[in-house]
Design a binder for these strands. Structure first.
Lengths: 107, 107
DNA sequence: TCCTTTTAGTTTGCGTCGCAAACTAGTCTG
DNA sequence: CAGACTAGTTTGCGACGCAAACTAAAAGGA
């Protein structure tokens, strides 16, 4: 901790809001465990509507947390995502902060 | 899990939004580790403005996650908070869901 | 060929939320 | 009594998440 007086719970107040949103946290978590993931897969795996998935993914893309690949497979358009190093780092930091804040440490 | 196919990351999508807000999560976490906590203490410990602290606490109170006690100490008004059983349970559930979702389990 | 359905995503509109700033109320000091 | 301080609450606004509406391209029938 930076400030020795700072209780670990303060880590919670500095969580990256972009990652903190449940849908995006779920998306990043899935992306972190696979090379490449398709839109369709995310939609079904997470039970998000296409609209929500699309907008969350856009935000993650704007932040540089993932990259988008649009391709055609058997003449069907397929959009895929890949987490970036930046995204992986953001997720890792988030995870660390959350785990720290969640630990039952006093104050 | 309800659906055997549901990956643990789905737990993330069912997080109690009331608890999920960082400031409120921090407040509940502090409250869970003490009998009673004063407004002033929370303000300083968490570095929240009085306004934000007040409004977050109000929401937690409305949800029945904490109870408020207003008293005077040496003619100075002191507002204190106590987590309720309901609040403690909500925090516990949140923690469990988050830890599950955060675990590096595939998908 | 034309039309309807399906798949794959994006955009739009609205209600809600979190934050900071402004405000209220009681106390103390000179 | 005037001004400053302590302790909170209320207000106003910008940002956000969600669902519904929309777009586009391909496949399947009649």
């Amino acid at each position: 901790m930076t400030d020795p007086k700072a209780p670990s719970v303060s880590a919670l107040l500095e969580l990256d809001r972009l990652v903190h949103e449940p849908a995006r946290l779920a998306i990043l978590t899935v992306l972190a465990s696979a090379e490449e993931v398709q839109f369709k897969f995310l939609e079904e795996a997470l039970g998000l509507t296409r609209g929500n998935l699309s907008s969350h993914v856009s935000k993650l893309e704007e932040a540089g947390y993932l990259v988008v690949t649009k391709a055609f497979e058997d003449r069907v358009p397929v959009t895929s995502y890949r987490i970036t190093a930046r995204g992986r780092k953001a997720l890792e930091s988030y995870r660390a902060a959350m785990l720290q804040g969640l630990s039952r440490g006093k104050a």
